[in-house]
Each structure stands twice: as C-alpha cells, then as structure tokens.
Design a protein around this nucleic acid. Sequence first.
DNA 1: ATGAAAGCGCTAACAT
DNA 2: ATGTTAGCGCTTTCAT
Lengths: 364, 364
Amino acid sequence: MSSRTPRDGAPTIRDVAARAGVATATVSNVLTGRRSVGADKQRLVLEAVAALGYRPNHLAASLRRQQTRTIGIVVPDITNPFFTAIVRRIEEVAGAADYESVLVDCNESTVREGARLRALLARMIDGLIVAPTEDDLAAHAPLLPRLPSSVLIDRGFGTAGFDTVAADNNDAAWRGCRHLLELGHRDIALLASARELSNIRDRIAGYQRALAEAGCGGRARVVLGGHGVESSRAAIEQELRRADRPTAVFAVTYPATLGAVKAIRALDLACPDDVSLLGFDESDWMTVLRPYVSTILQPSELIADRAWQLISARLARSAAPFEHVRLPCMLAVRESTKPPPADAAARRHARRTEARHIKGRMIA
Amino acid sequence: MSSRTPRDGAPTIRDVAARAGVATATVSNVLTGRRSVGADKQRLVLEAVAALGYRPNHLAASLRRQQTRTIGIVVPDITNPFFTAIVRRIEEVAGAADYESVLVDCNESTVREGARLRALLARMIDGLIVAPTEDDLAAHAPLLPRLPSSVLIDRGFGTAGFDTVAADNNDAAWRGCRHLLELGHRDIALLASARELSNIRDRIAGYQRALAEAGCGGRARVVLGGHGVESSRAAIEQELRRADRPTAVFAVTYPATLGAVKAIRALDLACPDDVSLLGFDESDWMTVLRPYVSTILQPSELIADRAWQLISARLARSAAPFEHVRLPCMLAVRESTKPPPADAAARRHARRTEARHIKGRMIA
DNA sequence: ATGAAAGCGCTAACAT
DNA sequence: ATGTTAGCGCTTTCAT
C-alpha cells in the first residue's frame, strides 16, 4: 500500500478533461477560478474531479506559472523557543493567505545554511524569511543575486537590499541593565554569544550605554559564550569563579540564559542572594524554576507578523523602499533580580583595611 | 535587489547548451553524471555553467523524473524536544543521502495535519515520515491511497500498510512503574495525554501490568491531561488535591512532565518528600531543576535512524514486508523519585484509630 | 464561454 | 559520445 511511486497512476488534468468531455483549460479554469465557466461544464468537471479523486499537481503548476506560492523560513536553531514562536506564527499567517511555508533549521551552521538555502532556491520558492546564522551574508555571495524577495529577521538588521525586522535590542539591553543598576548592582557581567551578530552587538551596546550613563562605563564585563548552552555555561562559570565575581549576570540570549542558570547551580551560588540573574527570551520551564527568572521578552508574534506583512507586499510586487523595523521588548521582573548582597567591593575593602590594621597592630 | 521574481531571467539549461555549443542533453549528462561525456565538452559545459552562474531548476527536473528527492517529516509538536531530536537526526541522515527534507509541524491539530499533508502530496514528495496526531489515520482517508512510501513513528504503531517505528512504550512504562513500586509506592498516578494514541495506550498498559504484577491491580489511577502543559497541570493538580493523593506521579509525555512539575510547585508540595515524580523525555532545563527529574529516555536517534533506513529502502523500491520496530528506552533515575513519606494509608489509619480511642475515652 | 496548442525547464528515449 | 525530440502536468495565450 505504501510502497508505491509517488502519484503513480494518479489522474491528471487530462483524465478529468476527458471524463468531463471538456478541454483541459476548462478544468483548470474551474479549479483555479481564474476565468468563468458555464454552470453545466462546471458541474461536469466537478463530478469528474470527485469521481477520479483528482488532485492538481502543484509542481507542474508552479513550473508553468513560475511561482510556487511557497515561502522559506530559515532559522539558526529550531530548539530556541524564540524562533519556534516566530515560525509558528509565520506559518499561521502565511497559511491564511494560502502560502505554504517550508521550514529550515541550520543548527547555527553557516555551511548548512548555505546548502539548504541552495536547495530552497532550486525549488523556486517565492519568498524567504531568514534569521541568518551570520550577519554578513557574504558567505552566501553566489546565492544573493538569485534570492527571491527576502526579509531578514532578528539578525542582519538594516542590511541594504532587504527588509529587516528585529527587536529593539539596544533599548532592551539598556532597560535590562538599568533595572540591575537601579537595584544597586555595579558589577554586572553580560553573557552574550558572539560579537559578529548585529542583534548581539546592539545588546552589548545597550548594556554599555546604561553603564556609561550610570558612570560605570569602565566596569563593563562582556563574556562571550558562543551559541551553545554548554559553552555559555563554561564561559560564565569562569567569570563567577573570580574573586571579584559580578553581583549580577545579564544573559542576552536564550541558550546563554540556561547556561547562566547552570553555572550558578554548578557553583552552588544562591540566586538572587549571591548573584542576580537577568535572562533573555523565555521557556515554560522558567516558571517552575526557583527563583523564577527575570527576563527580557522579545515580541516574537509582532516580529512574525511584520515579517509576513513585508514579504507579502513584495510578493505582490511592491517596489517600496526597503524597511527596517524595530519592535520593543518587555522587561519581566520576576524573582531572580534583587539588590546585591551588600556592596561587595566595599566589603572587600573593609576586610583588607581590617587585615592591615591587625597586621599593623601585630607589628606595633 | 530583493524585489525580483524568483529566478527571473535566470539562465536555463538551453542557455548553457547554447553558450557551450552542445546539446541540452549533454549539459544534463555532465551535471547529473548519468551518462559519460567527452572531456572536451565536459570542460565547455562546466565553463558555461560557471560563466552564467547556472543553477538547475529542481522543480522542472522533479516534474520530468517524477520524483523530487524530498521527503516530508510531519510531527505533531515541534516544541517537544523528543520530536526536535528526531527531526534533526532525520534531516542529517537524509541530507547525507542527498535527500532534502521538509518539516511540517501540526501543533497537535489533525485538521492542520490534513491540510499540510495535502500540500506536501501536491508537491510530490517521494516519502513521508510521520508521527501522526491521531493513531487512526481514518481522518485522512482520502489521502491514504495517494500517500508515497511512508513510515509512521512514535504513534500508530503496527498500522497495516506502513513501516512503523516506536519506542518500546509498554516496557518503558512497566520499568518506570516498577521503579516506583520498588521504592515502596503503592499509590501511583499515571498522567497521560489521551487514550487514543497507541503509544499512550502502551504506556498505560505497561503501568497497569507492573501494578498487577505487584498485586496492586486495583489501584491504577490514570489521569488524562491532553496534549498541553496547562491542561496536564490542571488534571494532575486536581488529583494531588485529593485527601488520598498519590505518593508518586508518573507523567508519560513531555508536556505532562512539565505539567506535573508545575502542579507540584503550585500546591507547594515537596518533591520527592511529599510526592515522587517520574517523567518522560527530557529537557535541558531539567538539569537545573531541583530535584533533578527522574525520567524515561526514548531512543530518539535510533528511532530516526531506523525510520530513515526503512524509508530509504522503500525509495529504492524495496517490496519487503512492512516492518514494525520497537526500540528500548532508558530509565534515568535522578533525584525526584524517593520512597514514599511513610505509608500514607497506614498513617491515616493510625490517626483514625487514635481518634476513636480518644473519643472512646471521652465517652467513657 | 470554450477549445487547441504552445511551452515552463528539465530528462530520457531514440537516433546517429 | 552526442544531438534531436518528446514529453512530465499544468496554465495561458490565441483562436473561435
């Protein structure tokens, strides 16, 4: 039953036409509704379709019309709930407009991204929504001139020749950092993935801006942990092992957030008593974590909606100038961000002074 | 740059043939390597391809050859790491065999599944790996006769006319339940999704079998929480609110596991002191949960490998009898399963006896 | 309103 | 080894 060639012996439009006693064009017109057909023939065609169980071959139609009514959605990591949310939403709205979407997961590998992008293009998709693994699309240079209408999301913000949509990362990081500063933190480590991504650069910049405004410009501590949970954990764990460890960690990606939680657990630090944690993005699991992790929420639905809106316009052959859309994030203050344990530097200073004191006395 | 019709003005095989001064067939033969071509022409063709930046149109080739070298992977919930792991693995091994895979997420909706399945079929995929939303494929009856070679994973085990691959769910649940029984639990609630799925039915059966073998056949408590985290939470929370609440919860799906954790948290029960928890599948977040959740691990990689292996054979036109493959799970005992607080029933009984005693004395 | 026929870009069968 | 040609199943002129 299932070891058959695909569509083997499946009826074609000619079979339908023959059975209905009409021309293939008429069948096509009935089915697509592009031209009006007499009620009688209409009925005949529909009957034949039903009798034969005819299903149009979308491949053939696509080849003829030079469009597939399909968009590609390319994300670097399907495991990241931020991307999952976006993908689900795009599929929903695209589906409502009768566009099929094919999802491609690159596993944060630019090589894989290139390979799957090529496969996508060879299949003649009409549009592309992509969160590129790298900001700079140079790695895919040979593909670029053949790319269909594309919008870049999350990463590569502002790239010329594309509509781009992203969270307002600079502002989000600024607000996150402000929140920690207002709680009294001065030693705030930023755990990010890699400086090469525009979204990460923006987050770093927002963090530094907040620090500078608070007169702590020199105290920025940017820790780069890569895209993985484990590499992030290792990076921040090292930072937390230092004598002058930060009193707060601001993890600015989803895997970094989990990595930071792991590091704090591994070192058996109390959160938020020993160290505060502010994360980025959200997992359902956070709600059962104690403390419930404070985090930055990106407007994933809005990003998806806007991305579809833009691609949709291009599919309709709009020649409007390229847009670059920033959408605001939300800061969700929960339980993992509290004032620092008492100013750590002051405490160290006090201890040192006391030591000198004792020493002095002993000498005296 | 990006507002162009897909492949607009892209060179075709005829352009290449013209430029190289050869026949289109020769170009095709050079590129596909299906027939040998003289070294000179070969060079000419390759040069023309490079000069023009020619990329074959896979759509046209697919139409002509009546095969797309594409398989569909259909899963009910891309958010579930069990499926994510399978998808990633299949894409990897299929890619190695030069098959593209298109991923479809149904969000546990049979309607959506039908719609996207139809879209997939119209695009003439060569094979299908599907974890169906419903065990009984009757909902898709009209599609069935036109399905390409398909293998069912996770659900619909043993369905005639398909190769099927699944974890040994009965055994897994049996072992999980045994583990709890050995710890001394007698009141074990099973939190499952829905009885309509073969995998769930198997898990329920395994649980009941273990109970029966331990002479507790009458104490089975099966709680159905649906596919969502919230619905699962609500269902098990109600059970945990009862005076005779279970001393252990065995959640047998991924969302049920999270739901159970949530319920335990919500009721402020201590785990494993008040109630033990055994889960199914795994999330990276579990490692940072206290207690670290004991769980059943499905062999997702093996399932993926086996599924590809089977579909791969069918693609090669094997007519071997359909196989039904069960793969063993692993029980990972961590921190959330401990002996019960002291036998609850005994305690209740003791209290009641004492009360009667007092009462009696007062009367006396 | 309907039919006949050309052709989307490729591959395979048939020539040579 | 290479060229010629006939389609794959549709849509879309161009007739009528």
